[in-house]
Design a protein around this nucleic acid. Structure first.
Lengths: 248, 248
DNA sequence: AAGTGGTCTAGACCACTTA
DNA sequence: AAGTGGTCTAGACCACTTG
């Protein structure tokens, strides 16, 4: 039983939850605590069944929810792996613009500036930071060709993301989240997005003046431990925005 | 085995699918074909296991997906029931307006007119109707107090919804889908929605002129057999629209 | 008290992947 | 060939709802 981590021994015994739920929590905790390699399989169902001294069906039930939530995926014959989230349902994906040939294109991201800034009360609240905690602020544009289709501001807790300050804007690639993971060990697993409208914002990159109506997408992104670690505001022109979903 | 409907005997034998999937399809078909009472439980897991001559675990696996998709829900100790969909994720739900006391309110629906109209090519396409099939058109407003917050146009296939033409606009209640089911036997199970923007539309109910930017929400709603049976366009002022979602 | 779905077991065999 | 997850069985007992 030395296998159980400190946190989980309590979780496994105390809570009035089904066995498979307690095991699910335990597995999730282990994955988060011990760090992990997205390329390497987690222990097999057989091994987990032995380790936890339960039947394999119970292990499968425990893992089922982790798969549904997107933390894991299964590959028959290979194993069960940590999943790289792709955010394919993000509202930002629905800003599609046509290039010269009329083809739909996903904008590329370019960081324009990065700096350390003083705490901002509302943003510290969003990130569940104490009032005195400093922030890192990025300005970033999303481009199709040379057209600016989205103008972004991003705030991160300085405590977790200080290593980013060593880089110049041009050293950031197209994608930010792999960069976060590589240099700060912060793995973004999920996010909450809000779509609304504003006519209060001015934005020279978007060529928008006070009074012009813009689409305003706020995102709070969460790491593996479900802590909010990024607050982002993206502004865009509404004309070419188109969002689809299926409901029941 | 007289229990199996005509459709399903084939489905159960022929397809190269897991047993629980073939049973799932069979159960789904039965629910759709035989009509049903949302207040009455479907056969118990024990009964289904006996009827299909499989173990109860297989029945549970078959029903699991129907529950996930929203067709059924389970109530421990009572049984498994057909679910009334609530469309709680609908984009339209995110038009929230404050009343005099500043409270958030969901708009009520009022039908302004209903009439039979000639085929409309794009709409017949959306509804997968032959070009010559006639339509029923409704105008409907969504109100908070006396403020118009959404202006809707709705098209239905005349072939399925003719009974609605007997009613005057004021006889339609706040909710349309129960009305469809009651009078036309069409049960709306799911829908696809698209959010975009238009400045092409004029709308006197919304007090919007050519050139004003409006939120445009299109919905195609599907019945139990997954046929598209309603096409709806809702227009609203963007100011108070706010939409949230969680992504991974 | 009777009946429902919820949890859990201890296997068996199959389908697929990798070496 | 060996190892993975996928399917399926035939039960047992528990938690909850209803008469």
């Amino acid at each position: 039983m030395a296998f159980y981590s400190s946190v989980s021994a309590a979780a496994l015994e105390q809570l009035n939850l089904p066995l498979y739920e307690r095991i699910r929590i335990n597995i999730q905790t282990r994955l988060v605590e011990q760090g992990w390699d997205p390329a390497q399989a987690i222990p097999t169902e057989q091994m987990l069944a032995q380790e936890y001294q339960v039947s394999i069906g119970t292990i499968r039930k425990a893992i089922e929810r982790l798969v549904q939530e997107g933390l894991l995926y299964k590959a028959q014959g290979r194993g069960t792996f940590i999943r790289q989230p792709d955010f394919k349902d993000s509202l930002l994906r629905f800003f599609r613009y046509r290039d010269q040939e009329g083809k739909q294109t996903i904008p590329t991201g370019v960081v324009k500036s990065i700096k350390k800034v003083a705490p901002i009360k509302t943003i510290n609240n969003h990130l569940k930071l104490a009032d005195h905690m400093e922030l890192i602020q990025l300005r970033r544009l999303r481009l199709v060709g040379s057209n600016v289709v989205l103008s972004e501001q991003i705030w991160l807790p300085e405590s977790k993301f200080a290593p980013l300050l060593r880089f110049a804007p041009h050293e950031f690639g197209n994608l930010l989240y792999p960069f976060y993971y590589q240099h700060c060990g912060q793995f973004i697993l999920s996010a909450k997005e809000t779509l609304s409208f504003t006519s209060e914002q001015e934005d020279e990159d978007l060529n928008a003046h006070q009074g012009d109506l813009l689409v305003n997408i706020e995102r709070i992104a969460y790491n593996l431990e479900n802590q909010p670690v990024e607050y982002r505001v993206s502004l865009g022109q509404p004309e070419n925005f188109k969002y689809e979903l299926r409901i029941t």
